[in-house]
């Protein structure tokens, strides 16, 4: 879908402002590298990146930020939020950064990022284990989706999110911290909400694991192909790349890619 010039609905009904949680880690020395903004998946919050990735990204010279979309993490609650509101939160934070940002989104947060890309010309984008929605993706995960059909949250048990390498106690602790996205946004995810085309033609990298129990290898390949590339795969890892035992490998690969393409 081409980008829309006339956005009467968006202008007539601007997204209501909310208090947002933004966590950050900045390098000691500003080397002029672009900032990286991480967006968590449904139910997760900025904390998921604060565990390992933010510090690691900063240690490699990239200012790192993570935002909790409304209703997630420590951001203000918002029961009626839709995808547009989540994308708004991402764009607001991206535009507040000193330089043009790289945006990375995980799980359904990747769908949020694709919507944000139509409203902000990111320097580059990374889709991590992307859940881009649609009926076929839902059919693959009936157990996860079923409660959502009746107004509940998506069911995200620890064994679906992490590999066995992560100690069970840690996995349980993470799973306990999960919240849920709004019912409206979940429905949009299930129905599939095709974003408008990204503005500014940013390079897009898709990262995932062939052993992800939520996103199939075929879905990863499709997502990457839509942006003219192949997915970067990390076998043996679970869905939550940033929390799993071998979290260092994917983030290093992403930062290598950023260094090479900029």
């Amino acid at each position: 879908m081409t980008v829309s010039v006339l956005r009467l609905d968006e202008w007539a009904h601007p997204v209501a402002p909310v208090r947002r949680e933004v966590l950050s880690a900045t390098p000691e020395l500003d080397e002029g590298r672009p900032p990286v903004l991480f967006v968590p998946g449904f139910g997760h919050g900025a904390w998921a990146y604060a565990e390992h990735w933010l510090e690691h990204t900063a240690s490699r010279g990239f200012p790192a930020y993570a935002v909790s979309p409304r209703g997630h993490g420590a951001s203000e609650a918002s029961r009626k939020a839709d995808l547009r509101a989540y994308a708004h939160d991402v764009v607001q934070v991206a535009a507040s950064l000193p330089r043009k940002a790289v945006i990375a989104g995980h799980g359904a947060g990747a769908l949020v990022v694709t919507h944000a890309l139509a409203r902000y010309p990111a320097r580059a984008a990374v889709l991590l284990s992307p859940v881009l929605g649609g009926v076929s993706a839902a059919l693959r995960n009936p157990g996860l989706v079923l409660p959502a059909l009746f107004g509940g949250g998506l069911r995200l048990p620890a064994n679906q999110l992490f590999s066995r390498e992560l100690p069970a106690a840690a996995a349980r602790a993470y799973a306990k911290r999960l919240g849920r996205a709004s019912t409206r946004a979940q429905w949009q995810l299930l129905r599939g909400a095709t974003p408008e085309r990204a503005v500014g033609d940013p390079p897009v990298l898709v990262v995932g694991s062939p052993d992800d129990k939520i996103v199939s290898p075929a879905a990863l390949k499709d997502a990457a192909r839509a942006y003219g590339g192949a997915p970067l795969l990390f076998p043996g890892m679970g869905h939550d790349l940033m929390l799993d035992a071998r979290w260092r490998e994917p983030i290093d690969a992403i930062l290598d890619w950023l260094e090479k393409s900029h």
Partner: peptide, 15 residues
């Protein structure tokens, strides 16, 4: 007002 004034790919801050 803000939404009708800002650049379409660089919103003015919510605050």
């Amino acid at each position: 007002s803000k939404p009708l004034t800002q650049f379409p790919d660089f919103p003015m801050p919510d605050e």
